[in-house]
């Protein structure tokens, strides 16, 4: 790749000085080594140090740099900048309060994650060695434990937009099923009780935006379906 100039349209808002948010048109010349959207944003920051966004690992495992990219949620570090239609329109993740520019307040998102008791519960005395699990049992956790809590899914979900305080959302429900599916966990009934509610689980209308946007290729809708199956199996 050579040097090239890229056009952006970026949501800007600094509550310290702006009365209201606005969209800023800005362009930046990229170096040949700049491949990802995050590289371009770092280049932009060298030009305008007030451009604010979160970032850390730059390889898609920490979940910091989720944003709305040309209308679709994704991670800046895993998005090829040259494949994006210009001007590249960047907005903060939808549905969460904006703190500044592309930085959103994720309190509600984490509150829902915490609400499903995201930790293993096993009340037996701890054995001296590892608790055994067959490779097949362990495989049940694949596609669940890899979640990076970036919030791309929950903030792409209309049910979460409407009821962020009541609907757990795809990320939280994926985590809930991660523990339900773990043969070492003993809290199945309490976990299902915790979700047996018109909103917490059942607001999922299988729109599947979550599956569409997950940068790790995970499938929260399938996990939600499996929780519903467990609810049914328990009732009969």
């Amino acid at each position: 790749m050579t040097k090239r100039t890229v056009q952006f349209k970026i949501y800007r808002y600094d509550p310290d000085k702006d009365e209201k948010p606005y969209m800023q048109d800005i362009s930046v010349e990229l170096e040949p080594s700049d491949k990802k959207l995050l590289d371009a944003l770092v280049r932009l920051r060298a030009k305008d140090d007030s451009m604010s966004f979160r970032r850390s690992c730059r390889e898609g495992v920490c979940g910091s740099d989720a944003m709305n990219i040309n209308g679709r949620n994704g991670l800046a570090c895993l998005t090829d900048v040259d494949t994006l239609e210009q001007p590249i329109t960047l907005r903060p993740l939808p549905g969460l309060p904006v703190i500044r520019d592309l930085i959103v307040d994720m309190t509600q998102f984490f509150k829902q994650y915490h609400s499903i008791k995201p930790y293993l519960v096993n009340n037996d005395p701890a054995p001296e060695r590892e608790r055994l699990q067959t490779p097949e049992e362990r495989e049940e956790l694949n596609g669940l434990y890899e979640c990076i809590l970036c919030a791309c899914c929950s903030t792409a979900c209309p049910s979460f937009w409407w009821n962020p305080d009541k609907f757990v959302g795809p990320a939280g429900l994926l985590a809930a099923y991660r523990f339900l599916a773990d043969t070492r966990d003993q809290d199945t009934n309490a976990r299902l009780d915790n979700l047996e509610d018109p909103y917490r689980l059942f607001r999922c209308h299988t729109i599947m935006n979550c599956v569409d946007v997950c940068p790790k290729g995970l499938n929260p809708t399938r996990a939600i379906g499996k929780i519903k199956d467990m609810m049914v199996a328990r009732a009969i």
């Binding site: 096993n122 608790r131 699990q133 067959t134 490779p135 049992e137 362990r138 773990d182």
Partner: peptide
């Protein structure tokens, strides 16, 4: 490492179920 397994760490497994 065993403590971590008890905390819920999803280690891969050998055929006999160990880490």
């Amino acid at each position: 490492v065993i403590e971590l397994e008890h905390y819920g760490m999803p280690f891969d497994r050998t055929d006999n179920g160990k880490i």
